[in-house]
């Protein structure tokens, strides 16, 4: 009885919070997605037209896949960069581990916009990279092509997300029992074999978690594309923003948001299955 009360008091506030501030708004959005409009009589008309026009608008789909591809690229690069980082922190950094990890996180204490603007200073036509290439004679004229492009969005977002991807990998690597590595060595594994057959498989759940830490939020990104994406780096999130803020077409915005939510949930479901399967395979091979 005591336990149950304790459980309820622990789980209660976060559940309430999630319900009021997440599930309820998503539910409202679901209702809105069937409305014909947000004002006047159209507000009370319910229709499937929004879904129909979403499904038939190839422009939305094209942008959705483009955004998915951008997010996928960001998450893969972030994971590839974060893994050696986390590995070093866990196995090599020793007692400096926490200090180094703190250094990694500290930039995140500054405003998000400030960090994006910093990238403008690096990638802009009078920026660091252009000046360097100019002085090395690689290019003849400073060009703003490094910024305001899809790659600028990817570079900036990878920078933003690497520390957050490193965290779960760090945790996963830290949980690995060192005895396993010794056992692998005793059984004749070379270090790289031990890494491939013991360390990597055991850390994969962390990699998967890190991957989604980057993938899910970047899929809905609209601020970074707005600031560094220029005319070619716009993403699906920008379209949703347009529907809500400019077209005042909340129903269409809702349909587009829900479509993304469904896609993300499906993807997470599939990929977590894959990750845990390979995880088991690695251990019991």
């Amino acid at each position: 009885m005591e336990n149950r009360r304790q459980f309820a008091s622990l789980i209660g506030p976060p559940s309430l919070y999630l319900f009021l501030l997440f599930l309820l708004p998503v539910g409202l959005m679901f209702v809105y997605s069937f409305r014909a409009g947000i004002t006047g009589p159209a507000h009370d008309v319910f229709t499937l037209d929004n879904y129909r026009s979403f499904l038939t608008n190839s422009h939305f789909h094209r942008l959705f896949w483009r955004s998915a591809l951008i997010s996928l690229t960001i998450s893969v690069i972030s994971s590839l960069l974060a893994y050696p980082l986390a590995y070093y922190l866990v196995f090599q950094a020793g007692r400096n581990r926490v200090t180094l990890m703190t250094l990694l996180i500290i930039p995140a204490w500054t405003s998000y916009l400030l960090r994006i603007f910093a990238w403008k200073l690096i990638l802009g036509s009078s920026g660091l990279l252009n000046s360097l290439l100019l002085s090395l004679g690689v290019i003849e004229k400073a060009s703003p092509m490094l910024i305001y492009s899809r790659s600028a969005v990817i570079v900036t977002l990878v920078y933003v997300w690497v520390p957050f991807v490193a965290l779960p990998i760090f945790a996963a690597l830290g949980r690995i029992d060192r005895n396993l590595l010794e056992a692998a060595a005793d059984l004749g594994c070379k270090p790289w074999e031990a890494f491939l057959r013991v360390t990597l498989p055991l850390s994969l759940p962390g990699v998967a978690a890190g991957f989604f830490f980057a993938f899910i939020p970047t899929l809905g990104e609209f601020v970074t594309p707005l600031l560094v994406g220029g005319a070619s780096g716009q993403m699906y999130g920008n379209l949703i923003q347009d529907q809500f803020m400019r077209a005042l077409n909340w129903p269409m915005g809702s349909v587009m948001s829900l479509a993304m939510l469904v896609a993300v949930i499906t993807l997470v479901f599939i990929l977590t299955r894959l990750a845990s399967v390979s995880d088991l395979g690695g251990v019991y091979e």
Binding site: H59, L63, R66, N238, L239
Partner: peptide
Amino acid sequence: TNTWSEVKTAK
């Protein structure tokens, strides 16, 4: 707005 959404993401 729809025209603009489509145009700005065409590139």
